Amino acid sequence: MRKFLAVTAVAALALTGCRGTSPDDAASGASAGPIKIMVGGIDKVIYMPAKLTEQLGGFAAEGLDVRLLTEPSGANAENVLIAGDVQGVVGFYDHTIDLQTKGKCITGVVQFADVPGEVEIVAAGQAATLTGPADFKGHKLGVTSPGSSTDFLTQYLATKGGLTSADYTTVKAGAGQTFIAAIDNGGIDAGMTTDPTAAKLLTTGKGKILLDMRTEQGTRAALGGLYPASSLYMDCAWVDGHRAQVQKLANALVKTLRWIKGHSAEEIAAKMPAEYAAGDPKLYAKAVHDSAGMFNGDGLMKEEGARNVLEVLSQFSPNVKGKKDQVDLSKTYTTEFTSKVAG
């Protein structure tokens, strides 16, 4: 299935006729061609800095031609990056660790958040008896897709509740309307999702918050520490060959992270495409309000967080199990570019 989706995405990209920036362009600091970035769900608030930067004119101000594309799942987005048809992915940092165990060098260049930005939502009808991870037993739990970051986090939460993945049923629920439909029709009893999906379920009374990982406090309570998630990650070789472009990307994105810290949810929401509000601007502003605090404002990775991600993956990712000591975390992210962004 992943191969099919990757091939489909690559075919779609090929139709655009866009080519990436060459090393010669990079050496001169020019941006002669577009930089294509695949976003693992472009309308998800957790990945908002990418589109917001475009809306604010941040990429253009740096002289960059950035093309934002979208895939509903980060696991699928990474396949397009590996194929070389995009230059970067906005997705969960944990993919850089997973890919290193497969012999790929992928590095996070801008870390948007130190927390997952995810919410474990329980269907209203199940809320009285499903009150924490220890109650997962016998229930159907929604994740974006098997092998996704939400899948690994769900397994980790179950373990902290004294359970294993054999104690519950994992259901591919996606995000947005597919997730909401799964709650509506009883396909899942609870599941992990992000805003604006979470905001829609909460305001309609269809769901209640079980665990809130949109804040540092909530994340530490649920996971025992930081868990950096949304980020821009790129192929190491491309980064090395296009350092001027990467610095400009970092400049644009970090400035947006700072802009978020200085503006209200309503001001932020107003800058986003109108269709993201799906006809309900107030609900979208609430979604932004509830999640915007997750963004770190500086784009820097915290070492503690990177270690925690490795710890979780070493327990639940089939690709990372047994290879924890072989992973070189220093190659999975860099603060070189974000640390140079002028104040």
Rank of each mutant, 00 (worst) to 15 (best):
R2G: 08
K3M: 03
A6V: 04
V7A: 15
T8K: 15
T8D: 15
C18P: 00
C18M: 02
D24N: 07
D24E: 14
S31I: 05
P34H: 01
I37H: 09
G40Q: 07
D43K: 15
P49A: 14
A50M: 14
A50P: 10
A50I: 11
T53Y: 08
T53C: 13
Q55G: 00
F59Q: 05
A60Y: 01
A61H: 00
D65G: 05
E71Q: 12
E71S: 15
N76A: 15
I82V: 03
A83W: 01
G88H: 00
V90Q: 14
D98H: 09
Q100S: 13
K102C: 10
K102A: 07
K104H: 14
C105G: 02
C105V: 08
F112R: 07
V115L: 06
E118F: 12
I121K: 07
V122D: 08
T129M: 14
T129Q: 14
L130N: 04
T131R: 15
G132E: 13
D135C: 13
G138I: 02
L141H: 12
S145K: 08
S149T: 12
S149I: 02
Y156S: 12
L157Y: 13
T159R: 15
K160H: 12
L163Q: 06
A166L: 13
D167M: 15
T169E: 15
T169W: 07
T170E: 11
G176T: 01
G176A: 02
F179C: 04
G187L: 08
M192Y: 02
P196I: 08
A198Y: 04
T204R: 02
G207Y: 01
K208F: 03
L210P: 01
R220K: 11
L223Q: 08
G224H: 10
P228K: 15
S231P: 09
M234H: 09
A237S: 09
G241Q: 15
H242C: 02
R243Y: 03
Q245W: 05
A252W: 09
K255R: 15
R258V: 08
W259I: 01
I260C: 09
K261C: 06
K261E: 06
G262D: 12
H263Y: 07
A265P: 00
K271G: 01
Y276W: 12
Y276N: 01
D280E: 00
K286R: 14
V288R: 08
H289L: 13
S291Y: 12
S291T: 12
G293I: 03
G297H: 04
D298F: 10
G299C: 06
L300A: 14
L300V: 10
E303A: 14
V309A: 08
L313M: 10
S314C: 11
S317W: 05
K324V: 04
K324P: 01
D325G: 08
Q326W: 09
T332D: 04
Y333K: 05
E336F: 10
E336Q: 12
T338Y: 09
A342Q: 12
